[in-house]
C-alpha cells in the first residue's frame, strides 16, 4: 500500500534527525570550548519539545509550565544538599517530583482553553510561594541553595544529554504510536474524539505527565550545572515564555518544530543579543507578536501548508 511507504519515509526522516542530534551533542565537548552554549541549546530543545507534548499534541497551553522546572531544581537541591543523596539519585528524585506535581495538577485538565492557561499560571505562582514558605534550612530561604561541592560541568552536560535521549524516545513514542493519533484527535475536537472511542482522560494524562517530567529533570540538571538555585530564577516566567516561543516558532504539533525553533532562535538569541539583556527582552516580546501574526503555525507548519505534497513526510 502506498501509504505504508509514506509513513516509512516519515519515520526515516525522524530517525535521521535523532541520529544527527545524538551524534552532534555527543561529540561537541571534544570540539569546542563553549560547552555552555551547547548545554543550553539542549536545555531549550528539551523544554520546547516537552511543551509541544501538551500544547501541540494535546492542545493545552500551560502558562505555568515553569513550575515543573522550578520544582525539579528545588527537588534536586534539597535531595542533594539537605538529604545528602548522590546527584544521580537526586535527579531521579527531581523527575519523580515533576511527575507527582503533574499528577496533583491533573484535575485542572478538565478545564478548557484559557481557563486552563490562567489556572496553570496561578498554580505556578502558588508553587513558588509554597517553596518560599518552607523552612529556610531546607530550601536556603531567600538566598537559595548553592551546590558547589557537586561542581562538574562536563558530567552535567552528559546528564542533560541523557535527558535529551529520553526526550527523543518519549517524543517518538507519543507521536508515532496510537497514543499520538489519539492525542491529535483530542487536540482538534475533544468531544468528537470521545464519540469515536478515544479515552480522553487517560490519553491526555500520558502527554501531561511526559510534559511534567522533562522540565523537572531539566531544572535539576541545570541546577547541577550552575550550582545555584534561587526562587526568582527557578520560577522565572520567561522560562515559560521562551519554551512557548521556541516551540511555536518551529511549529507546534510537529516533532521537528520545537527542535528547529529552539536551534534557530536560541542561537540568534545568544550570538547577537547577549550583550543587551533588556533589548533582548524587548525582542523576545516583539518576536512573539510577529510570529503569532505572520507565522502562527511556525516555520515547519508554514512549510507544510505551502508544500502540502511533502507534508506526509514531516515527522
Amino acid at each position: 500500500m502506498e501509504n505504508a511507504r509514506d509513513s516509512r519515509v516519515r519515520v526515516m526522516v525522524w530517525a535521521g534527525v535523532v541520529a544527527a542530534l545524538t551524534l552532534g551533542f555527543a561529540i561537541v565537548p571534544f570540539l569546542t570550548d563553549n560547552l555552555s552554549f551547547m548545554f543550553y541549546m539542549m536545555l531549550w530543545i528539551i523544554m520546547a519539545s516537552a511543551f509541544n507534548f501538551v500544547a501541540g499534541l494535546a492542545g493545552y497551553m500551560p502558562f505555568g509550565y515553569v513550575a515543573f522546572y522550578g520544582v525539579g531544581a528545588y527537588a534536586t537541591g534539597i535531595l542533594y544538599k539537605t538529604l545528602e543523596f548522590p546527584i544521580p539519585l537526586a535527579l531521579i528524585g527531581a523527575g519523580l517530583t515533576g511527575a507527582t506535581v503533574g499528577l496533583l495538577l491533573a484535575p485542572t485538565l478538565r478545564l478548557r482553553g484559557v481557563y486552563f492557561g490562567i489556572v496553570s499560571l496561578a498554580l505556578a505562582m502558588a508553587a513558588k510561594l509554597t517553596i518560599s514558605l518552607m523552612p529556610a534550612d531546607l530550601t536556603g530561604g531567600s538566598l537559595g541553595l548553592i551546590l558547589s561541592s557537586a561542581n562538574d560541568p562536563l558530567a552535567a552536560y552528559y546528564a542533560m544529554f541523557v535527558v535529551l535521549l529520553l526526550l527523543l524516545a518519549t517524543a517518538t513514542w507519543l507521536s508515532m504510536s496510537r497514543t499520538g493519533t489519539a492525542l491529535r484527535a483530542i487536540r482538534d475536537d475533544q468531544e468528537a474524539a470521545a464519540v469515536v472511542g478515544v479515552n480522553v482522560v487517560s490519553t491526555r494524562m500520558k502527554a501531561w505527565i511526559s510534559a511534567a517530567v522533562f522540565p523537572a529533570l531539566v531544572g535539576g540538571v541545570e541546577a547541577w550545572y550552575t550550582n545555584a538555585i534561587d526562587l526568582e530564577s527557578s520560577f522565572n516566567l520567561l522560562i515559560t515564555a521562551k519554551s512557548i516561543v521556541y516551540a511555536m516558532a518551529g511549529g507546534l504539533g510537529y516533532l521537528v518544530g520545537p527542535i528547529l525553533g529552539s536551534g534557530l532562535l536560541y542561537g540568534v538569541d545568544q550570538l547577537i543579543w547577549r550583550q543587551f539583556p533588556t533589548l533582548n527582552l524587548l525582542l523576545l516580546g516583539v518576536i512573539i507578536v510577529l510570529l503569532m501574526l505572520m507565522l502562527p503555525r511556525g516555520i515547519v507548519g508554514a512549510f507544510a501548508q505551502r508544500f502540502s505534497k511533502l507534508r506526509k513526510y514531516i515527522p
Partner: peptide
C-alpha cells in the same frame, strides 16, 4: 454532528485511523 466535527489538522487518512485505535 449537525455541524461536521472532523479532526481538522489531521489528514483524512489519519481521521479514519482514530475510530480504529481501540
Amino acid at each position: 454532528f449537525q455541524v461536521p466535527r472532523v479532526f481538522s489538522r489531521m489528514t483524512l487518512w489519519d481521521n479514519l485511523a482514530v475510530p480504529l485505535l481501540s
